[in-house]
């Protein structure tokens, strides 16, 4: 693989308790290559979201990074000071949360929310920002007249796509999506992920995609890491995670998922 965009090395994160600490992420290492769609799968509490937050240093106490490195294009994110961090977020790494569609400001038009980021980070004026915002909305298949709308006038799927467009405003190298479509219907979910898949081809960003839906992940990702109790137990090409899972837990996950075609539960994985 060429020089990775993101390189997580021996990352350990604790949640600090009164008496004992809880190790949420335990010595996790993985790389994401340029333009790669990388999936991180696992059940609730396995530490996948904790990693996502740590990459953009959005983790909050009691979470504490005990050890390890997070390198974004060779630069250690953990060494950045406040001002560097402000510039780094969004322009290098942008993040879409599970309830991102509710993270739009309800009292501002979509256009103003684009202007906010484009003005702050790139010094654009209103007219420049409007032009760029129109371009970005086109990327996610949303009509330009939506710029005048308020969030409540858009559907959930539309808002989620608007958030993604805003995330892409500064051409980030890495887009982190933490359960981005869990609250949406399958058809909308499919439209959004298909769009992201096309865009990463066109714009060349990498994706860290977090979900508990392993089936969906296999459909869209290039490589997948499976987490269990804070540990990354298996990393492999998406196809191999499905057809030749190596870890017992991965096999058990597949064995607990009813299938749409063929035998009800897949026996092949043992």
């Amino acid at each position: 693989m060429s020089v990775p965009v993101l390189s997580v090395k021996n990352l350990s994160i604790d949640y600090i308790g009164d008496e004992t600490d809880f190790r949420a992420v335990d010595d996790v290492s993985f790389d994401i290559g340029p333009g790669e769609f990388f999936g991180l799968a696992g059940e609730s509490g396995c530490g996948k979201s904790t990693i996502a937050f740590a990459i953009s240093r959005l983790h909050r106490p009691p979470a504490l990074i005990r050890s390890g490195e997070i390198l974004l294009q060779g630069r250690n994110v953990l060494d950045l000071d406040t001002e560097q961090l402000r510039k780094f977020r969004w322009s290098q790494v942008a993040m879409v949360f599970q309830s991102a569609m509710n993270s739009l400001n309800p009292v501002l038009t979509i256009e103003t929310q684009f202007y906010d980021v484009l003005h702050t980070h790139l010094g654009m004026n209103r007219a420049q920002a409007r032009e760029r915002a129109a371009e970005l909305l086109k990327l996610v298949d949303i009509s330009v007249d939506r710029l005048k709308s308020y969030p409540h006038q858009c559907s959930g799927g539309m808002r989620q796509r608007i958030v993604i467009a805003i995330c892409l405003a500064l051409n980030p190298k890495l887009l982190i999506m933490d359960e981005p479509t869990t609250a949406l219907d399958v058809v909308v979910q499919r439209e959004i992920l298909q769009r992201i898949d096309t865009l990463r081809g066109e714009l060349g960003f990498s994706v860290l995609f977090i979900t508990h839906d392993l089936g969906l992940m296999v459909q869209v990702c290039d490589r997948i890491g499976v987490m269990l109790e804070g540990k990354l137990v298996e990393v492999n090409a998406a196809h191999d995670i499905y057809t030749a899972p190596q870890h017992d837990y991965t096999r058990k996950l597949w064995a607990s998922m009813p299938r749409l075609h063929g035998e009800q539960i897949r026996q092949g994985a043992q």
Binding site: R190, G215, Q219, H261
Partner: peptide
């Protein structure tokens, strides 16, 4: 068909979905 095409299915990459015509005509 549209619904079935959109249901997560590890056997099928997006591009190879059986009912992509429906998916393009949502």
């Amino acid at each position: 068909r549209l619904l079935l095409s959109a249901v997560p299915d590890p056997d099928v990459r997006f591009a190879q979905s059986q009912y992509n015509a429906e998916m393009a005509d949502v």
